[in-house]
Amino acid sequence: MTTVAVKPATMAQALGRALRDAMTDDPTVHVMGEDVGALGGVFRVTDGLAKEFGEDRVTDTPLAEAGILGTAVGMAMYGLRPVVEMQFDAFAYPAFEQLISHVAKMRNRTRGAMPLPLTVRVPYGGGIGGVEHHSDSSEAYYMATPGLHVVTPATVADAYGLLREAIASDDPVVFLEPKRLYWSKDSWNPDEPQAVEPIGRAVVRRPGRSATLITYGPSVPVCLEAADAARAEGWDLEVVDLRSLVPFDDETVAASVRRTGRAVVVHESGGYGGPGGEIAARVTERCFHHLEAPVLRVAGFDIPYPPPMLERHHLPGVDRILDAVARLQWEAQS
């Protein structure tokens, strides 16, 4: 057996490779969006695809998000499998009506006769110094819409595996790409991509006994860092990476919290009406008698995303996570 040289790859490269492999395996897969052609996308995720597959399958569209998603709906109606790129989180809003009234509902409206197997890739979240309208965490809108799957990777291997599965899925998937992790590197062999857990399964990224940090996407590395720092305080934190917000893996999350007895949900999205409220409720409903303290949330403030020079005060960081962990009523134990 020969050992394959495994080189570090970025998340953006893994996503690009997933698109390329999906297009190679399935001629109905089409990539479309703003600047996805010659430029390779503003984050270079589609780099080289137009050259390899031609303009018919990798299409620079006019600059109009409702039109991009609306035409993708029509293409999916005719049997294609479009992968749409929204350039930035906040620029996806013009496509909301198409997403909510058609993409999410078409299977249901037609009693299964007209499923729409399309993927909407959305770079999301902050932390890259983006100016106004470039750093939103819009996942709460998507996860509140029945009919959509909402997936977000936090590792290079997941970026590849989850995107391949999203494209192959017969359900429409909103694929949220944490843009500050685009350049994160991991040892990863593009020619033998490792198998990952399927969409709908959460993964314990770091086992621990004291408390569970429940998180996803861009906040996963932050939570891992917090868990490392917590050792000095005597806490052994478990980190659960949700990987998909819809479907939600109640089983893995509840099993972790039953073990640790304490939980903090961490995300960039605002706390009020955000994913954390739903997650805390689900954990409480399932683990009430195992909980030593209320489930806490560390979220972005309930403010419009701040100017980039102030964003570090807004984003959940290690200190804020450790402060929350400190508030998990440890005194009750003694």
């Binding site: 035409t71 029509g74 005719y78 009234s101």
Partner: peptide, 18 residues
């Protein structure tokens, strides 16, 4: 929802042509 079927028609026609 008004006019939202029009981009669908465009996409379907485009896909058929492809």
């Amino acid at each position: 929802p008004l006019a939202t079927q029009l981009p669908h028609a465009v996409g379907l026609a485009h896909a058929a042509r492809l």
